[in-house]
């Protein structure tokens, strides 16, 4: 049976409808980004132009790092619930009984977390740039646009979200408790952000080639993350809590 975007769309639409009516999701999608944009703005407007260029760059790096926490934390919270939450509610089995393949299911879940995350993250980045352009000191604005900060934001927002999504789904598929899954997913989403932080603080000197190289590396990790998730997603384990121990090749994983 070929990959069906109709089935992906069915789960995707269902997820978005469910998000809209879920207070926890609404809170996660609004409060968390709001907190980080406020912290970013405070950082931005507290900057003194009298400091050295390197120090100014560090402070801008820190303020923009807050923005990158959004595509890391928001999808972690969403995807950590995606499988184990459905399992707890009893809604997973009816879905797995349909012809949907695990690839379709995973892509649908990932897209449903990725889409709002990217919209929120880029929208807030736009708000940040607009506020900087309109209200910040010209030296600060120049520092924002001069270096690789904008490129890092644009490149790493979807890649960090991708990593967080696959980690969240993988942990969710192996967990038996929603809260444990959410905590683990947040921890697992952080390592790539640490690398970006090193670059933002100039511990690793930031440059366009380095940013692109690290982004390519993260893309590779995202691809491997996807494969890892596909490998741990097993219908039998999800339904019975055990892996099939029968004949080889008879796993009910598709």
């Amino acid at each position: 049976m070929t990959f069906s975007w109709t089935r992906v769309g069915a789960i995707f639409r269902k997820e978005l409808r469910d998000y809209r009516r879920n207070r926890f999701v609404i809170f996660t999608m609004s409060a968390l980004p709001l907190l980080f944009i406020v912290m970013t703005m405070v950082q931005l407007f507290a900057l003194k132009t009298s400091v050295s260029s390197a120090r100014l760059n560090d402070r801008i790096g820190l303020s923009m790092l807050y923005l990158l926490i959004i595509p890391t934390m928001v999808p972690s919270a969403l995807t950590a619930y995606s499988v184990v939450g459905e399992r707890e509610q009893g809604t997973l089995e009816p879905v797995l009984i349909t012809p949907i393949s695990r690839e379709e299911f995973l892509v649908a879940k990932a897209l449903a977390a990725f889409t709002p995350t990217i919209i929120i993250a880029y929208a807030l980045f736009g708000v940040f740039l607009s506020a900087a352009e309109l209200f910040a000191h010209p030296a600060v604005v120049a520092a924002i646009f001069e270096r690789s900060h904008v490129l890092i934001q644009l490149l790493f927002t979807p890649l960090l979200a991708g990593w967080a999504i696959w980690m969240g789904i993988a942990i969710s598929a192996r967990s038996t408790d929603v809260r444990a899954a959410q905590q683990l997913a947040i921890v697992a989403s952080l390592p790539p952000l640490a690398v970006v932080a090193l670059m933002s603080f100039n511990i690793i000197p930031a440059s366009v080639p380095l940013a692109i190289t690290l982004a390519a590396g993260l893309l590779v990790l995202d691809i491997y993350g996807w494969r890892a998730v596909a490998a741990v997603f097993d219908r039998e384990r999800l339904i019975s809590g055990r892996v099939a121990d029968g004949r080889r090749g008879a796993r009910a994983g598709r």
């Binding site: 069906s4 109709t6 069915a10 409808r17 469910d18 879920n22 089995e93 009816p94 349909t98």
Partner: peptide, 30 residues
Amino acid sequence: ARISIMPESPGLYLRLTVAENLECFAGLYE
């Protein structure tokens, strides 16, 4: 694609309407 199973627990998406639940599954069956 040729069978259906009604599990012991209905397993409905409680935040969705009846029609929205069914539309989702109609999509899954294409």
